[in-house]
């Protein structure tokens, strides 16, 4: 075995250089960061187990699984985002490598199929006064506060790249999950879209 431990690399590690970029005429309109310590897993209900799954999740994690495009929060940093009929993305703040799948699988055995996706998605956080304006340059959905509020989620695209977006707070702040192999192109697009407003990139952000 090699002498040193295998080093982990975050999807945007080499790309998301911290600093202030784009227009500098005013305060940065867009804040960008990567969330690197969150565990993700796909959860899909087994056949005819939907009701039992919802009940089991409620008792095990303290939250119902959303049945429309929303994010629900459970105990201990767990949350669930709707990802299609009878499908969710489970998220665990500060999730250790490989930590989320066994935790869910134990409680949901026979009720749901659980697949670790912690490495399959990059999660980018975008906030700031001009975040909506920047996202409007690539995303076709309406993010206006009357149409999309904290906790709302959507499966959509950003400049030809499939993404999963949910709103975190009213600042507004959003999180966007992007397939890992696309994250370079995604970051390129997002920073191009944000440059007009000036953006501040911080390398990583804590998931909570």
């Amino acid at each position: 075995m090699p002498d040193q431990a295998l080093r982990q690399r975050a999807p945007l590690e080499a790309l998301a250089r911290p600093g202030r970029f784009g227009a500098t005429s005013a305060a940065a309109g867009v804040m960008l960061s990567e969330i690197r310590d969150r565990g993700l897993a796909s959860v899909a209900a087994r056949k005819n187990q939907r009701a039992a799954l919802l009940a089991a999740a409620k008792s095990a994690f303290g939250c119902g699984l959303p049945t429309r495009p929303r994010r629900a929060f459970g105990r201990d940093g767990l949350s669930f985002v709707w990802a299609g009929p009878d499908q969710w993305v489970a998220m665990l703040d500060h999730g250790p490598v490989g930590g989320i799948e066994p935790r869910l699988a134990a409680s949901l055995k026979g009720l749901a199929s659980v697949v670790d996706q912690s490495d399959g998605r990059a999660v980018v956080r975008i906030g700031g006064a001009r975040a909506r304006a920047a996202l409007a340059k690539g995303m076709p959905i309406d993010l206006h506060e009357r149409a999309f509020t904290p906790g709302d989620a959507a499966l959509t695209f950003f400049s030809h790249i499939n993404v999963h977006i949910w709103q975190v707070d009213e600042t507004p702040t959003y999180e966007i999950a992007v397939p890992r192999s696309f994250v370079g192109s995604f970051w390129h697009w997002l920073t191009e879209a944000s440059a007009e407003f000036g953006y501040e990139a911080t390398g990583s952000n804590s998931s909570a």
Partner: peptide, 14 residues
């Protein structure tokens, strides 16, 4: 649709 099967792409996970 009657089959009990769930599948998901993990192309980017591994």
């Amino acid at each position: 649709p009657d089959l009990d099967v769930q599948f998901v792409s993990v192309s980017d996970q591994w």
